[in-house]
Design a protein around this nucleic acid. Structure first.
Length: 815
RNA sequence: GCAGAGGUUCCCGAGCGGUCAAAGGGGCAGGACUCAAGAUCCUGUGGCUUAGUGCCUUCGUAGGUUCGAAUCCUAUCCUCUGCACCA
């Protein structure tokens, strides 16, 4: 077998693609339809790309190449999510400035990506840490500020002591920081910036524009947004009306106590002097436990000394401060119905509070009865079914101006301020006289100062000169906001910037975005379901409402690729030491082989464990292809080859469209296995074209060898000629296969019995004769083979077996 | 606890009502080639049986629907992955 220097071929074509600007695109309204393929841009870590990235980007690359060859004007860009806490932490740990650290990492990523042969339009690359990019983060923030969608408020927030910063709800996993799995998130009361994503909650909970998104993602988002229908009911407390939210207004007559969140900002308005000490003690105790432990705590509370007046019965209801009520959902206070809510039931049992049954149908001994039923003990509503009662009671409350129907969302406003350095500075100036003042648009971007002290607290606090500014409104002394924006702000709209990434006057040209957006095919992990994928939907809608976009959703089709685990089935991570680098594999096998292997193991949406075991199979195939094309005779193809070719074209095209790359590759292999010494040009070229999306470098090289001038990457995808698909031939081939295994079976039986045979005689129907090749079958069975037509008078047939021959089942005689 | 994905022949994985003892790859075994090894090619790879046949068992486990199930339904066990007190 010939030795092939794959690495040299790779370098050659990567250079040619770059020099020929093969993958750079422009808007082209007349000739071609656009197609936008995008893989989620990575955070450039110092560790570089691993095999999992390679898989992810290959999936997108294969599709992009496919679409290019199908004649689409394909936008396939790449960039870097280069701002954010992880980069800052890693840089500080490495003793480097985040900027230097990040830019080094990006350089490395680009190099690695180019080595993978990915078809990106590099001229459009964006990096979110560049002021030219985050200027527009700031610009959008100011637009939101203008519209009242960016605001400041004090509230209990998630605090990670390792990040030294607050976290969004979405960044808290299992009570721990998403970046520090060993660090419990604490609850702190701080003033923070929020984006009012809840203004879009209703539209976000509607998925009609996302028919081509996976159901799983939509379900996850739906749960996350958590739309619930219920009632707001006003309870009078100390002559003030306090609203509470409930989904069960039908249980209103069963309220025996109220619970206010221990984190509620107005908690102490409700605490009478006598109880102050108790409540303070309780709150203090809670603040010393981590968020995770709060989740595990029993329901606990303490009486505040205050009472609420029941809106309908006018009964006095004691108010407790409790650990199980969320301060930022609903109004932070609940009406407790112990008979029909398990949490309230547990609490009532613990503190000996009355349990009043108002829904019949269940037993209330060890547990609350939480199902629906007929009302009892509910005055005029007795005997009415729950659903009906909900409506009637709400109606009555509305009439009395004591409440009404409301929709509540689990989704909270997005906390975007971070007390860290490596983020886009929030473009606000704090003036003692004027309050929070926007940085004028002409002064954008507010660039990060280079010289800051890293250590404790927010590094930006140490940039004294940078902080000091004049108030744009009154001209007096003022200070810059030192908080920076959450990293997810950058990724919420980057896909739009690619459409016009070099624009330094506007966020993007409206016409260009109108041409390219939305993303037609978006590829990324499902772990982003409740973060990036919700935020970017929110941003898209906001920018639409600003008049910048005509679309309402960022991507038409979403595909979640499977995760590539390490050898033992564990997540690939530096700390586990199971990271496989593309370079390592590429050096050994060539990058085309690696790409081919990655997508042939399993369907791209499935999680797989990395293993080098099977890669030799891919390498063997690639080598065989290379060797075959190296000295192939171009001539005529058999009808069988042409039939197979067209069938393969059909199947492969469908498989790729459906992201079944693994199946497409099998079909290509089977086609290739069938190639004879001589094939016609069309067959050979079509095969190479289909292979090229998986193995672009080798395909280009062989394409050139066949005498072509242009790039195979830009050639036209083969079309299936249905007429050439010949079912008869296929049947005939099956007959041959069956005959071969029959012969093998006979030989086995005979030799088991101690017989020794050298010659095989096969008696076929006259019309089948052309499908049976003595030499080929001889090779397959490892014996000398003679084929006779049953009508052949001179045939050698001592036992008259030819008489038993049937169509599709030839007679066999061995001796 | 809730939600989702999944358990397939030695391994990885396809199949998702009949053409299924189940694609493809890996591994292994036998054969061809070779002085030999490697590479390559062919064949085989649940069991029994048989001159190419027939039968039995198998797709986590147990039932069910059906003329017919790896594929559909029900229960059950295990694995993974999200979300977790949202009133």
């Amino acid at each position: 077998m010939i030795k092939v220097n794959f690495n040299a071929i790779e370098k050659k074509w990567q250079r040619k693609w770059a020099e020929g600007k093969v993958f750079e695109v422009k808007e082209d309204k007349k000739k071609k339809k656009k197609f936008y393929v995008l893989e989620m841009f990575p955070y450039p870590s110092g560790a570089g790309l691993h095999m999992g990235h390679a898989l992810n980007y290959s999936i997108g690359d294969i599709f992009a190449r496919f679409k290019i060859m199908q004649g689409f004007n394909v936008l396939h860009p790449m960039g870097f999510d280069s701002l954010g806490l992880p980069a800052e932490n890693a840089a500080v740990k490495a003793g480097e400035h985040p900027k230097k650290y990040t830019e080094k990492a990006i350089k490395n990523y680009v190099k690695q990506m180019k080595n993978l042969g990915l078809s990106y339009d590099w001229s459009r690359m964006v990096s979110s840490h560049q002021p030219e990019y985050y200027k527009w983060d700031q610009w959008i923030f100011l637009k939101m500020f203008e519209k009242g969608l960016a605001y400041k408020k004090e509230s209990p927030v998630n605090w990670c002591s390792k990040c030294n910063s607050v976290l969004a709800n979405e960044q808290v996993h299992d009570g721990k920081c998403w970046r520090h799995e060993d660090t419990n998130v604490e609850v702190k009361h701080l003033v923070q910036w929020y984006l009012k994503i809840t203004d879009y909650a209703e539209e976000l909970a509607d998925f009609k524009g996302l028919s081509e998104w996976p159901d799983l993602i939509k379900k996850l988002q739906k749960n996350w947004i958590g739309k619930s229908y219920g009632a707001e009911i006003l309870f009078e407390i100390n002559n003030e009306k306090w609203p509470i939210f409930t989904t069960r207004p039908d249980t209103l007559f069963g309220v025996t106590f109220m619970v206010v969140s221990a984190q509620h900002s107005k908690l102490f308005d409700l605490v009478i002097d006598d109880k102050k000490k108790d409540v303070e003690k309780f709150v203090k105790k809670l603040s010393s436990v981590s968020k995770e432990d709060i989740d595990k705590l029993d329901k606990e509370g303490v009486f505040t000394g205050s009472y609420a007046i029941h809106p309908l019965t006018k009964e006095k209801i004691p108010i407790y401060a409790g650990n199980f009520v969320l301060a930022d959902y609903g109004s932070g206070m609940v009406m407790a119905v112990p008979a029909h809510d398990q949490r309230d039931f547990d609490f009532a049992k613990k503190y000996g509070i009355d349990i009043k049954e108002v829904i019949s149908g269940g037993e209330i001994k060890k547990n609350a009865y939480t199902d629906k039923g007929k009302l009892i003990n509910s005055g005029e509503f007795d005997g009415i079914e729950s659903d009906e009662a909900k409506k009637k009671i709400t109606k009555l409350l509305r009439k009395k101006k004591l409440g009404g129907e409301v929709i509540n969302y689990r989704l909270r406003d997005w906390l975007v301020s971070r007390q860290r350095y490596w983020g886009a500075p929030i473009p606000i100036i704090n003036c003692e006289k004027c309050g929070e003042v926007s940085v004028p648009e002409k002064d954008l971007p507010v660039e990060l100062p280079d010289k800051v002290k890293f250590g404790k607290g927010n590094p930006l606090d140490s940039a004294e000169k940078w902080k000091k500014v004049k108030c744009p409104k009154c001209g007096g002394d003022a200070k810059r906001e030192t908080d920076t924006l959450d990293t997810f702000v950058n990724s919420s709209w980057y896909f739009l910037r690619y459409c016009d990434s070099q624009n330094n006057k506007k966020i993007f040209d409206l016409k260009k975005v109108d041409y390219w957006a939305p993303v037609d095919f978006y590829i990324g992990g499902k772990e982003h379901a409740c973060m990036h994928l919700i935020y970017s939907r929110f941003y898209t809608k906001f920018l639409r409402d600003l008049g910048l976009l005509k679309i309402s959703e960022p991507a038409k089709k979403l595909f979640n690729q499977g995760m590539l685990h390490g050898e033992g089935g564990e997540k690939m991570s530096k700390s586990k030491g199971n990271i496989v680098l593309p370079e390592t594999i590429s050096k050994k096998y060539g990058i085309d082989t690696a790409r081919l292997f990655l997508v042939s193991v399993a369907s791209p949406d499935k999680d797989i464990d990395w293993s080098e075991k099977g890669i030799n199979g891919s390498l063997k195939f690639v080598k065989k292809v290379f060797e075959y094309f190296n000295d192939v005779k171009i001539g005529k193809s058999s009808a069988s080859s042409e039939s197979k070719l067209n069938k393969t074209i059909k199947g492969v095209t469908e498989d790729i469209e459906n992201l079944k790359y693994n199946l497409a590759i099998i079909k290509l292999r089977q086609l290739f296995e069938n190639f004879k010494e001589e094939e016609n040009n069309e067959t050979l070229e079509s095969f190479l074209k289909m292979l090229s999306i998986f193995c672009p470098h080798i395909a280009e090289e062989l394409w050139e060898k066949l005498g072509n001038n242009g790039f195979i990457s830009l050639s036209e995808w083969p079309k299936c000629n249905e007429k050439k698909i010949n079912k008869k031939l296929e049947m005939a081939e099956q007959t041959v296969d069956k005959t071969v295994s029959d012969v093998m079976n006979i030989l086995k039986i005979v030799s088991d019995k101690g017989g020794k045979f050298e010659k095989v005689y096969i008696y076929v129907m006259p019309f089948e004769k052309e499908y049976f090749d003595e030499i080929l079958i001889g090779e397959r069975v490892g014996k000398e083979v003679k084929i006779f037509s049953v009508q052949d008078k001179d045939k050698y047939d001592p036992e008259g077996i030819a008489k038993k021959s049937k169509p599709g089942k030839p007679g066999i005689f061995v001796e």
